[in-house]
């Protein structure tokens, strides 16, 4: 009988409140960070010089650029390195800087040299951090239950790996890279990752269905509310189902066109999933729900 708690904007009403500050650009930064670091990690693994370079550039230009565009005071960006002790933004920034520096040294060190190996390890670890720190960053908002879960970094990691794998396949298919492993291995890995991501996402959303009211409100917005259409079509349909079906039934046999299509679909799904997760972040009412 109690009136349901409303979802409110800037009006002076207590209720669930949408996170509005992080949207397009932050989603873009997270996206480029994840696919760039994923590609870099995959390239380390399969020894693709071009892949590693492209990965670094995606992170530097894509992620770095989106962040700079977003900052209110971009000219002071360097201050963002000050507090890695507590801040995931600072940690991410440090990881990205280390990844850039060590990755570049790795790329230009003689193959097989100690420097190459050492910096590959450093760059790999920092790329791993870049891939997952968004998850921790989002996790550190205690009042957005949708984000405030240990599933978040896991989701980030697997999306990063998926993006990296897809991009690697794309680079191979279009002749930009030669690799030490067989394509079939990568194709299978792609299918496994797509399946894994689908399962993780379903598990993640199911966990929200049984979580607090604000999480349910987020979920409602995502699967039934304002954001349901882009969620089903872009994040789920194109990003996971379509890619999975194409990869399974056609795959690399379909030639460059199909791989290009899968890559595009995967990237679209990836961007929109995190964009939507940012948009449907819902804070709890300040004093909880009013009971009669």
């Amino acid at each position: 009988m109690a009136k349901t708690t409303p979802l409110v904007g800037k009006e002076f009403v207590s209720g669930f409140r949408l996170q509005t500050e992080w949207a397009t650009l932050i989603a873009a930064a997270f996206f480029f960070g994840k696919i760039g670091s994923g590609l870099f990690l995959m390239s380390l693994f399969i020894n693709s010089w071009v892949g590693a370079l492209v990965g670094l550039l995606i992170v530097l230009i894509g992620k770095g650029g989106a962040h700079l565009l977003y900052l209110g005071r971009p000219e002071r960006f360097w201050r963002g390195l000050t507090k890695p002790g507590t801040s995931w933004v600072a940690r991410g920034f440090w990881a990205m800087m280390i990844m850039m520096v060590s990755g570049t040294i790795y790329l230009f060190s003689p193959i097989g040299s100690t420097a190459s190996s050492v910096f590959a390890v450093i760059a790999g670890i920092s790329a791993f951090v870049v891939a997952i720190y968004d998850g921790f960053l989002m996790n550190s908002s205690p009042s957005i239950p949708l984000w405030n879960t240990a599933m978040m970094p896991v989701l980030c990691l697997f999306y990063s790996l998926l993006g990296g794998t897809t991009l690697t396949l794309f680079l191979i298919e279009f002749g930009f890279a030669e690799v030490a492993v067989e394509t079939i291995f990568l194709s299978n890995m792609e299918i496994v990752l797509l399946l894994t991501n689908l399962i993780i996402m379903i598990l993640y959303l199911l966990s929200m269905a049984n979580a607090t009211a604000a999480a349910k409100e987020s979920l409602r917005l995502l699967v039934r509310g304002t954001f349901a259409l882009p969620f089903y079509v872009l994040a789920l349909g194109i990003g996971l189902v379509f890619t999975l079906l194409m990869s399974y039934f056609v795959g690399t046999h379909g030639g460059a066109g199909v791989v290009g299509l899968i890559t595009a679909a995967d990237l679209v799904g990836h961007y929109f999933l995190f964009y939507l997760l940012l948009r449907v972040g819902v804070y709890k009412p300040v004093l909880g729900q009013l009971t009669m």
């Binding site: 500050e21 992080w22 962040h67 977003y70 900052l71 209110g72 005071r73 971009p74 002071r76 960006f77 201050r79 963002g80 390195l81 000050t82 507090k83 890695p84 507590t86 801040s87 995931w88 933004v89 600072a90 920034f93 960053l137 550190s140």
Partner: peptide
């Protein structure tokens, strides 16, 4: 905790302040 620049700090008496000169507008 989340401020990467140290612009947001807590004084000894508990008042939390933002130093506008240090803030980069990351909105974390």
């Amino acid at each position: 905790r989340v401020c990467p620049t140290g612009a947001t700090t807590k004084r000894e008496d508990g008042i939390v302040l933002v130093d506008h000169k240090k803030c980069i507008g990351c909105r974390a």
